[in-house]
């Protein structure tokens, strides 16, 4: 050890970055389309983790315990649950405020976030305390050179994130929905005039973003096996910062920002735990002061 470049930290950082990337994508897609920082997005991630947890206890007997079928069912259910909650949140809380001042939506989003968190915390069968996440898949370390290993969990995290991100890229580039999403993010009014059902596109965006956060929740549960109702707050904020770092509204930017964030945080924490807690906000402040549009964000002149 001792050297500043440390392969193990890079591996750990990429693993953490994969989880951030899945959350950051939802933030950036929603922001790109409705210009809203969806404060509740971190809670969709939490819902994914709890759904996977519940799925394990419901289907454990049927599916014969841990293993790939169990993991697949948990993944699908987590994505479905988070996606539906995101869809519902959009319909009930954000859509009525679409043409009101932007801050009303932001405050509503804070309210939704609080509501979800405290509801989970107050419900007797969930409760505020930590729960140990079951071992759906065993973690086996694989040697990487001399002094680094990569666990099967890390491979799964990175792999699932990669597959989902490739899927999203195909969706955005080659499907009608993807084209509509890009059109709406550029100019809502023009898209409407072109016959695009803007509200439908927004709904799909929330659903997909929520589902990705749900997948991240499952992966996080498996990797850092401790879940609680407020677990979404910090990863949510960090993923948001990652999206800002990459250029909010920009899909490849969110992924890039998330991996930078994951690696930076892993290194900072290894150096000093307080620094690890603060690095995300330090990054945010530096980005906003030095390059507010983010690494890949575009500059556009304000209309005056």
């Amino acid at each position: 050890m001792g050297s500043i470049f440390n392969l193990q930290q890079v591996v750990n950082g990429l693993q953490l970055g994969s989880i951030y990337a899945l959350i950051a994508l939802g933030y950036t897609m929603v922001y790109g389309i409705v210009r809203l920082i969806n404060f509740a997005h971190g809670d969709f991630y939490m819902i994914g983790a709890y759904t996977a947890y519940g799925a394990f206890f419901l289907f454990n007997a049927v599916l014969g315990g841990s293993g790939l079928p169990m993991a697949a069912v948990a993944l699908v259910l987590a994505m479905l649950a988070s996606g539906l909650v995101a869809l519902l949140t959009n319909r009930l809380a954000y859509r009525p405020l679409r043409y009101k001042p932007k801050l009303s939506s932001l405050i509503t989003a804070i309210g939704v976030s609080m509501l979800i968190e405290y509801l989970f915390s107050a419900l007797p069968f969930i409760g505020p305390s930590f729960r140990a996440f079951p071992e759906i898949l065993p973690s086996v370390p694989i040697k990487l050179g001399q002094n680094a290993t990569i666990s099967t969990h890390a491979l799964i995290d990175i792999g699932v994130a990669a597959v989902l991100m490739i899927g999203l890229t195909i969706l955005v580039r080659h499907t009608t929905l993807g084209k509509a999403m890009r059109a709406v993010s550029q100019d809502k009014d023009a898209a409407k005039l072109m016959g695009i059902d803007v509200e439908k596109v927004i709904a799909w965006t929330f659903m997909i973003g929520g589902a990705f956060a749900g997948a991240a929740g499952l992966l996080a549960g498996m990797t850092y096996p401790r879940i609680f109702p407020f677990m979404g707050i910090l990863p949510g904020l960090k993923a948001f910062i990652a999206a800002v770092l990459g250029g909010i509204g920009n899909i490849p930017g969110a992924v890039l920002g998330a991996y930078i964030m994951g690696v930076a945080e892993t290194f900072a924490t290894a150096y000093n735990s307080l620094l690890g807690e603060g690095i995300a906000f330090a990054i945010l402040i530096v980005v906003l002061l030095v390059r507010p549009r983010g690494i890949l964000g575009e500059k556009h002149a304000d209309k005056i």
Partner: peptide, 14 residues
């Protein structure tokens, strides 16, 4: 008990 009052609070804000 517990956190239900916060649930109502959040609902009020929304």
């Amino acid at each position: 008990g517990g956190d239900w009052y916060m649930v109502l609070y959040a609902l009020l804000l929304i």
